[in-house]
Each structure stands twice: as C-alpha cells, then as structure tokens.
C-alpha cells in the first residue's frame, strides 16, 4: 500500500461527507423517509439543468439553488401525491422522483447541445479527482467540513424539535412546533447536503450514508443521542475502511486471480460497500446477541 497526501485528503473528505450525511439521515429514518435522499439525489437533476439554462454558468451557487428547489419540490410533491392521490408514501416518492429525473434528462439533452453538462459526472462524482487541487486544502474538503459543521450545529440546536416532530407530529403541532415546517426544514437540509456532497463524492455514497449508518446504529441502541453518535462512528469507519479497501483490495484480488495489472477502484463506491458490510456484520451480531438472552432492543410485552 502506497499512502500519499492525496489518500489523506480523500479519507478526510470522505469522513466529513459521511458524517454530514449520517445526521440528517438518522432523522429521515425516524420520519420513515429514508429513501427521500435517493429521491432527492435523482430529482435534483432538472433543478441543475434549469439553473444552468437560466444562468448559463456552472457556478456552485446557481447549481445549489436549483438543486435545493428541486429537492424541496420532491418532498412537497410527494406529500401532495400521497395525500390527494391516496397512494402509499414509497409509491408517491417513486412517481415524483422518476418524473423529475426523466424531465432532468430531457433538459440536459437540450442543454448539452450547447455546453458540457455531463449527467455521468452528476451521478457518479469522483472523490479521487475532486481532491486534486491547487490550494493547500482542497475545495471539496472545505465544503464537506462546512457542511458537517452546519449539520452538527442544526442537529444540536433543533434536537428536541426534530425528535418531537418525528415521534408525534400531532402533539408537536398542537404545542406550537409546526411539524410540517420542521419536516420541511429537515428536507431542506437533506437537499442541500445531498447536492453539495454528491458534487464531490457522487450520489451512491450520499444515498448510502443517508440510510445505512442510521440503520446500522438502530440495531444497536434505542437511545436517540446514542444512535446519532453510533451512526456517525459507522459513517466515519465506512469512509476510512472503504478507501483503504479501494486501494488495496483490487491489487490483492488481482494477484490472487493472476491479473496483477488491476489498479485501485472507486473509493466512493467502496465506502458505500463498506457501510453495507458493516451493517451486515452488526445485524448478524445483534441476532446472535438476541438469541443469547441478552436484554433485547424491543420486546412488546
């Protein structure tokens, strides 16, 4: 293994992005909206395209504004389809984000006649090239760091409100904490996080980090603040182990299979895979623990 400064920055950026996603992801899970991140990451495409068509630039600001508008639209439209179309929430989200994503593809085709706005780039991002930067601290590391700090601050400030609105929206609203507004705020944060994060690491890692660390942590604890901390630990571990896996495993597998030419694979994808493997391990562990008579996480009596 040949560790360079580049690897250090990839890991730092990866850890920060994963931490930033794990926090809103945990609350999305508690609101039973885990797949909203998936929906948003697709539905932002028309937002990006329209922002580009209006401003003729690929600056980060119009892109983020376009994406956030599309992200919030996804949440609002999903709720509307669910309520007025009387369909189940997963189906409502599917209808909305597929529709928006397809619209985005059409718009991008239109736009791409004039400029290079690459759908692949939006979808898969590339943490390896993103950290190659002239500045001492790569831009994506700064963005991810800022994102994590803002999300952490918002979680601490609105911990009580987020918990209340997720657990009992009716009570929240009667107490004067408008549950719809709080959930919309969470959606807003998830949209901004999704957009800023997938610019650097691609949507697969973002979706994985919104869902998997929270799901893993929920197997281990039934205390919300402990759940948040545990989710962050798993997120960070996925990033570190994922990158190490990405630069070592292909070479190892290559030697094993007699193809020594295999180089490193995508770090972002490997981080997502690692998160999945960690979930699997924890799931097996929790089943083993439950079958050995230790105090169980939930036993309705």
């Amino acid at each position: 293994m040949n560790w360079t400064e580049l690897d250090t920055w990839i890991v730092i950026t990866g850890v920060l992005v994963c931490l930033a996603c794990a926090l809103p992801g945990a609350f999305l899970m508690l609101n039973r909206q885990s797949m909203l991140g998936d929906g948003i990451s697709h539905a932002v495409l028309p937002g990006l395209a329209i922002a580009f068509l209006l401003t003729h630039s690929r600056d980060i600001l119009p892109m983020v504004v376009g994406a956030v508008v599309a992200g919030v639209l996804t949440a609002v439209l999903t709720q509307a389809v669910q309520r007025f179309g009387q369909v189940e929430s997963g189906a409502a989200l599917g209808v909305v984000f597929c529709g928006l994503f397809a619209t985005g593809l059409i718009l991008i085709r239109v736009a791409s006649d004039r400029v290079d706005l690459d759908a692949d780039c939006v979808l898969y991002g590339s943490i390896e090239t993103a950290v190659v930067d002239v500045a001492r601290v790569p831009r994506v590391a700064l963005i991810s760091g800022g994102l994590f700090l803002v999300n952490a601050l918002l979680t601490v400030l609105f911990y009580k409100e987020l918990r209340l609105a997720a657990f009992d929206p009716a009570l929240a609203t009667t107490l004067g904490f408008n549950a719809d507004a709080i959930r919309l705020g969470l959606t807003l944060v998830a949209s901004v996080t999704t957009v800023l994060a997938f610019e650097s690491v691609g949507s697969i890692l973002v979706i994985a980090m919104l869902v998997v660390p929270a799901a893993t942590a929920s197997l281990l604890t039934s205390n919300l603040s402990r759940l948040l901390v545990t989710a962050m630990l798993f997120a960070a571990a996925s990033a570190v182990l994922g990158h190490i896996g990405a630069i070592t495993l292909p070479g190892f597998a290559g030697r094993l299979l007699g193809h020594p030419g295999l180089g490193a694979t995508s770090s972002a994808a490997m981080m997502a895979v690692t998160a999945g493997i960690l979930f699997l391990l924890v799931w097996v562990f929790s089943m083993w623990r439950d079958s050995h008579g230790r105090p169980q996480r939930s036993t309705p009596t």
Partner: peptide, 11 residues
Amino acid sequence: MGLYRRLGWCL
C-alpha cells in the same frame, strides 16, 4: 415532550 412549549425553541 409535554413541557416543550414552555421551554421554547432550541433550548
């Protein structure tokens, strides 16, 4: 949670 209204936002 019944006491949240008296606590107010963010506290």
